[in-house]
Design a protein around this nucleic acid. Structure first.
Lengths: 345, 345
DNA sequence: CTGAAAGCGCTTACAG
DNA sequence: CTGAAAGCGCTTACAG
């Protein structure tokens, strides 16, 4: 990488002169047109780009926000990030402190390729979200150079903001049980995510314990997209004996399924009751037709909490393995468990 | 802000020693426990935080990505940003070059309070999205210190990636005209955004020219949220003579309206035909009930284009006022203009 | 009109 | 076990 000195040498002037020209003070300092042209030519030839760190160091006028890396798996639905970012914004306004949040997309299972955790001078701190099992193993094996908070994961070693995934599955199963169901189907997002697996286990095991049968063919795997839900619903409809209880591991999938059910005249909740895990904005499931019963993951609040911990870590006044467990409220809406007006029964 | 020298002075040691301790090399370098404790105490007392710029400058090991500020109005639906970020990701992979994208939420009409454009050493470049009229005036009046690309806005002065907002309104009106409508209603997001105003004008003026009447009471203003659409739809239903053509300036509002229509047994498109401006993910309108006809703003492609221009500006090989106008295709779906099977007619 | 030099806050060989 | 010094790449008074 060319430096200002290289440019100066090539142009046959001093570094100071190059700096003046590059900072648009050429006319103010009466630098000759000729010199200016020589310098700009050298800049182009060497593909010179100023070193921002050196600039910042030199001219201290500018308040320097801490830079926080947000590691977000690139194949995770970006609109989940929307909720997260909303929470981040809340936090900065609550803390009266500003952070530069840098979005760092990473490929699941390849977190170890990222440099930000290994160096102390890229970011001041990091939030790591949507780790896969092997990413977690990697994290357990290293000691990052910067403060780290895990989002929606737990570890003894790190600060973490998380939910009880198993319980989410349990509560969904219990609601089905309460509604008197004896068999159920599941739509699962295919993914490498531990959290989702744990949720499924919670659901499946609780079903078993409460006399709800889940036949192997009633477990439908799909992409974690609306379209994935559409495909899954088509499979569901074609089952020999579609259960009247459906658990969707992601509300995105549930929305796709609703689309198909509405189109095909399958009534929710009369023909099939649905519970979904609330990952996307509450709005999306609140105003679907019908509104969906969800076990809600409070992303915004969790994100706010993340930033507060990070802020504390940077200031050295938070314990190095603080964990906050968030509750995941069951929001009962028309798709399952709601008391319906007589006319609709 | 305390420096390493301050810490060294307070602890009564040299700056080098402080550095060694802070970098976790104390035991390796056999620094006495006593010294370590003195230093850490001084660090805490002074609330010392290392200057990342100085670190970066000193230890050049780490590749330094250009930092791009993404100015995004904080009251704009964050899930629009989702689409934008998806486009950004595509760009970085296409360019084989990495950028640090820093999310900079700003308050509309207060872009002038942001420092990033005024200094050359905070960010390397900026993308500015969702400017209000007065933000645009501000931008016209200044010369930013860094390369800037406008997103979904146009200016002679800046690079811009934009769409023909007027035409979006025109095409929606023309489709209604083709469907034989003689009157129409509009649901508008209340906002300070020029783009939305222009769209409305395009729609209203074209309606007028084509004999479609829009009564003042048929113009419904609402929040740009699903809930806003719900409220708007309730007002729509209570109109004395609700038109059979409805233009929504935002698909988010349209989704809220659909919720109400479905609930109240108002059939789309039989009872009312809907065209919406496609701002959120295509998925969301593709799998609603019924799927929505939209004039789509190709956010992802526009974002990709933004980054490519930025990359060119940084490398000095793109013109300083390059503009790219994107097409906004009309996507015909069931809510308006689709050829329906006989059974549904 | 332009150059030489100081110094921003760090880290790291080197010396002792 | 610790300190003094050099130097990363810039910018900016100062000198001429």
């Amino acid at each position: 990488m060319a430096t200002i000195k290289d440019v100066a040498n090539l142009a046959g002037v001093s570094a100071g002169t190059v700096s003046i020209i590059l900072n648009g003070k050429a006319s103010e300092r009466k630098i000759s047109i000729e010199t200016q042209e020589k310098v700009m030519a050298a800049v182009k030839e060497l593909d010179y780009r100023p070193n921002i760190s050196a600039r910042k160091l030199r001219s201290q006028d500018v308040s320097n926000n801490p830079t926080i890396a947000l590691y977000w798996a690139s194949d995770v639905r970006v609109n989940l990030m929307a909720r997260f970012l909303r929470g981040l914004q809340n936090a900065t306004s609550q803390l009266g402190r500003n952070f530069d949040i840098v979005i760092c997309p990473y490929k699941n299972d390849f977190l170890h390729l990222e440099n930000g955790l290994k160096h102390r001078n890229i970011y001041n701190a990091a939030i790591i979200a949507n780790t896969s099992v092997s990413d977690m193993e990697y994290l357990e094996s290293i000691t990052p150079e910067i403060p780290v908070v895990l989002f929606n994961r737990f570890s003894d070693k790190y600060c973490a903001v998380h939910v009880d995934n198993y319980k989410m599955g349990v509560e969904s199963a219990l609601l089905f049980s309460k509604m008197g169901h004896k068999d159920a189907a599941i739509m699962l997002a295919k993914s490498a995510y531990l959290a989702m697996d744990i949720r499924n286990r919670g659901f499946v095991e609780t079903c078993k314990n409460n006399g709800i049968e889940i036949l192997p063919e009633n477990i439908i795997i799909s992409d974690n997209t609306i379209e994935g839900g559409v495909e899954a619903a088509k499979k569901f409809i074609n089952l020999d004996n579609p259960p009247k209880a459906l658990f969707c591991n992601s509300d995105t999938i549930a929305l796709g399924a609703l689309h198909v059910f509405n189109k095909e005249g399958i009534k929710v909740p009369e023909d099939v009751e649905i519970i979904a895990v609330g990952m996307s904005s509450v709005e999306n499931t609140e105003f679907s037709n019908p509104p969906l019963t969800v076990v809600n993951i409070p992303m915004e609040e969790m994100a706010t909490s993340c930033i507060k911990i990070i802020s504390g870590l940077i200031d050295h006044n938070v314990e190095n393995s603080t964990s906050i467990l968030f509750d995941t409220p069951l929001i009962i809406r028309d798709s399952c468990g709601a008391i319906r007006p007589k006319s609709a029964q």
